[in-house]
């Protein structure tokens, strides 16, 4: 294999890995926005998922070892995933309660969730780290659960093997969630109801759909997905890989909020757009542009986001794609 081809393959591999947390969080936010809730707390929920998964896996390992046993990496992974989903869901539940039941402003509540989630994660990250004697880190077998899977001979097919069969389980999990959500939103009865709630809650209400229940469920499940996206960052990203890193989510959540617009609220397009953004996040490491300083190159994903926002607004994509009631609270009494 020649050098430039392997460089391209490496780039694609890294782009896919970088896109995985974005995909999960974007899917979570799409589900949330389909119910009419614009939750700007994605970054916060990702932070909460990131620390909770790491902390729960670490806590489980320590507890088993203290009892004299050997912790199972599989159990640790399952616990981590459950904790991430629960933490993200919990963050979303706070948001949902304030916004749906107490009718608070969606923008401010979402921002607050981001501030809270960031503080929550850094606080507990440092606290657990201090108790662990420096920094938190899960055991090597648990770390291995989040490294790339070897599919045997499949992984060794030239080019294709590396392109398709060389990732960790969370990448494939993201694709599965995408497929399920695409089916749910377009083909299932409940998905249709949910979209009705997001488009016009009063009509859905009149048709006998339990608007409050749909809003709560979609927001909390969406938050759980964001939490899982955060878990990808703390457990399998190359920067963290099972070790708590201060401020590790660092803007991924916000990129996901932008990706929802880019993807026009479609799960399948979220995957494609996620890949493009994953590529933008890592491209500087593979294709240096002569004369362009690295620090300027690092701005690309953010500049691209702005261009996407401008493009979407100039073409008025939003009017066609965004759920009509998105960002507005529904008061049954004020119909």
């Amino acid at each position: 294999m020649n050098g430039s081809l392997s460089n391209i393959l490496n780039f694609i591999n890294m782009a896919v890995l970088a896109s995985a947390p974005l995909l999960l969080a974007t899917l979570g936010e799409i589900l949330t926005e389909k119910s009419g809730n614009l939750n700007l707390g994605v970054e916060g929920m990702m932070f909460m998922g990131a620390i909770s998964s790491l902390g729960a896996a670490y806590g489980y390992e320590q507890a088993v070892m203290a009892a004299g046993g050997t912790p199972s990496a599989l159990v640790a992974t399952i616990i981590a995933a459950l904790a991430a989903a629960a933490a993200g869901g919990f963050g979303a539940l706070i948001y949902a309660f304030l916004v749906i039941t107490l009718r608070a402003n969606q923008n401010v509540t979402g921002l607050t969730l981001t501030i809270f989630g960031t503080g929550f994660a850094n606080f507990f990250g440092e606290l657990i780290g201090k108790q662990a004697g420096g920094f938190v880190q899960v055991s090597a077998p648990t770390k291995a659960m989040f490294s790339n899977i070897d599919f045997g001979s499949l992984s060794r097919i030239p080019v294709l093997g590396s392109l398709l069969f060389s990732y960790n389980w969370m990448v494939y999990f993201g694709l599965l969630v995408m497929a399920v959500m695409a089916w749910f939103l377009s083909k299932s009865r409940r998905g249709l109801n949910l979209r009705a709630v997001g488009e016009n809650p009063a009509t859905a209400d009149a048709a006998g759909v339990n608007v409050t229940l749909y809003k709560y469920t979609a927001t909390v499940v969406g938050g759980a997905l964001c939490g899982l996206g955060g878990m990808f960052i703390s457990m399998s990203s190359t920067a963290c890989a099972g070790v708590w890193v201060h401020d590790c989510v660092n803007g991924y959540g916000w990129l996901a909020v932008a990706l929802v617009i880019f993807a026009m609220w479609s799960p399948a397009r979220a995957w494609l757009c996620g890949l493009v953004f994953g590529g933008l996040l890592v491209v500087r490491n593979y294709f240096p542009i002569p004369g362009l300083p690295m620090q300027i190159y690092s701005m690309f994903p953010y500049i691209a986001t702005i261009l996407v926002l401008v493009f979407a607004s100039v073409r008025q994509v939003k009017e066609h794609a965004q759920p009509a009631s998105c960002g507005l609270n529904y008061f049954r009494e004020e119909r």
Binding site: L102, T109, I115, F116, G117, F123, E126, L127
Partner: peptide, 24 residues
């Protein structure tokens, strides 16, 4: 006390949650 200073951010978040809630 050995309490991580990020406690302030978390506390600010909690305060805002309460203040948003009380508006109702």
């Amino acid at each position: 006390m050995g309490i991580p200073k990020s406690a302030a951010d978390m506390l600010i978040g909690i305060i805002l949650f309460f203040m948003l809630g009380v508006e109702f």
